Each structure stands twice: as structure tokens, then as C-alpha cells.
Computed example of a mutant assay.
Amino acid sequence: MKARKLFTVIMICCLFLSTLTFNSNKVLAEEIENTKVKYTPLEVSNSYSKVMVEDLETGEVEYIESVLEEGEFVHYVFNSEGEEKYKVEAVGNEIQLNGEVIATKTSEITEKLKMDTVKPTEYSTQAIKWEYTTTSSGNSSWKYAQATLIAAVIATLLGVPAGYSIVLTIATTFAGLELTTVYWKKSHYIDANRTYSTCKLASNTSFYKYSNYTGFIKSTGLVENSIDPCNQPY
């Protein structure tokens, strides 16, 4: 039951920065904390990150390592002795925790939107014109109410390293939330001026309390993927 609570909380976090367009050049978050947890990014790049997570109530320390594997980020959680506890990854339309499904994408919707509906903010280093493609929707439940897994799931949903500032900022806001399930819609975008050698991707995820997608909680704002699928060796 703790896990379901955790996952629900995590999905809601992603909504915290409703007006931001996140760019990979803003990867490094500074130390972020509230009364319950402190996130300290130790190393962050477009393809890797390591974050120290300290439970301020118990003093327990864990680490999240985000590693790029075959074009997707996989997030490993280690205890203070370096032993692996969890593996969080996207598998098809699911997010899995140690092989157990904790989030699913339930449908794919195509909506007619203008290409300039979502505009860059101070988190974007260049004025990219984004073209809307599709919207996916799904839900998740908390498996473990742990700060490390909250950040790992958010990072998996957004497709970025857990050390990114948007992930840690959102994850910090979820401490204390009492939700068991969260529902989400994720709108997908692609660079309207893409070429054969570059096709940057982005998304905007909104979270809701109820299965009919009412009870709006928050949106992430536009989050630019750190990996350009048209400009990678795999």
C-alpha cells in the first residue's frame, strides 16, 4: 500500500512547474529540501545523473543513478552501502519497479492543436517551434512512499535523468500528499523544423485526482527531452 501511495504522489509532483519549458541546458539542480527530505545532485549530464537522497526524519541516505540504456533512461536506487534496491524503467506502455507494473498508459488520443500552442520560457535556450503529435493518458499507484522512488518515477515519466531540477523540485512537493492513485495526460510534441539529423521531442504532462480526468492538480509545463532520437548512435 505504501508503494501505491508513493506512485500516486509522484505523478502529481510532475505538475509542479506548470509554466516551465524545461531544457537540457538547465540540468543541474541545486540542493533541494523540505522538512522531510533533501535531494542533493552529485553529478548531472544529458545522459547520466547521480542524486543523494536523505530522509530528514530517519537520517537514512540513498542514491539514485540514472543511466541511458538503449535510448531510454533506467533509474537505479542504491542504499548507503552501494547495494541495489530498486530498478525503475519504462517498458512499452508501462513503468515498472523491479519488474512490477506501477504505471500504465491506457490510451492514445490525437487532438488538433496549433503548433505554437506551447511556447518556450526562461528554461529554454532557443525558441523552438513545437508541433503537437498525440496525447497519451494513464494512471499510477504508489508502491513505496519513498523519496527516491518518487523522483525515479517522475524522471521515468518525463524521460529525463532524475538529477534534473524539474524532477527534484516536483518530487519535493509530494511529501505529505495522501493520494492512492493519480491519473495523467501527456501531450507529445516534436520540433516543427526537424530534419533527418535532428528531431527534438518534448511533452507536457497534466495530473488529475479522478479517473475521468477531473480534479486537476498540476501540469509540468513543456519538458524538452534530453535525448534527440535522430542524433544518437543507437
Results as ranks from 00 to 15, higher is better:
S80G: 01
N98A: 09
Y63F: 11
A103C: 08
I150H: 12
I190F: 07
P120H: 06
W130Y: 03
E108C: 05
A152P: 00
Y132A: 09
L149C: 05
M115P: 04
E111Q: 13
E62P: 00
E69L: 10
E72D: 09
S141A: 14
Y164G: 08
I102V: 13
K112D: 15
F78P: 08
S141H: 10
T181F: 01
V167Q: 06
S197E: 12
G92A: 04
I150R: 06
K185F: 00
Y86R: 09
T125F: 07
E122L: 13
S124H: 08
V153G: 09
T156Q: 07
A175F: 10
I190Q: 15
Y196M: 14
S136I: 06
G92V: 01
E65D: 05
V91D: 14
L157S: 11
T134A: 07
P161Q: 03
L179C: 06
L157F: 12
G99E: 03
A90D: 04
T156L: 06
L168Y: 03
D191E: 06
A151R: 01
K114I: 12
T173L: 07
D191A: 02
E81L: 09
L179K: 14
E94L: 08
V101H: 08
A147G: 05
I170P: 11
T195R: 04
Q96P: 05
G159Y: 01
E89Y: 09
K87T: 05
Y86V: 02
T173Q: 12
T181E: 10
P161Y: 02
Q146K: 15
T198Q: 11
V74L: 03
I154N: 06
A145I: 12
E122R: 09
A192I: 01
A151F: 04
V91Q: 15
E84A: 08
K105W: 03
S141P: 00
Y132C: 03
S66H: 05
P120Q: 09
E100W: 01
Y189W: 07
I154G: 13
H75P: 02
F73S: 02
I95A: 14
S80E: 10
T135G: 03
T121G: 15
W184P: 05
W142R: 10
E72R: 11
T148N: 08
L113R: 15
T134S: 12
T110V: 14
I150Q: 08
E178Y: 02
D116L: 07
A127F: 07
Q126G: 05
V153D: 09
E65H: 10
L177A: 11
V118C: 08
A145M: 12
C199A: 15
A192C: 01
H75F: 01
F174I: 14
E100N: 15
G159F: 01
G71C: 02
V61L: 00
L158R: 09
A155Y: 05
E70P: 00
E89Q: 13
L68P: 04
E94W: 02
V160Y: 03
S165P: 00
T172D: 10
E111I: 10
E65K: 13
S165N: 08
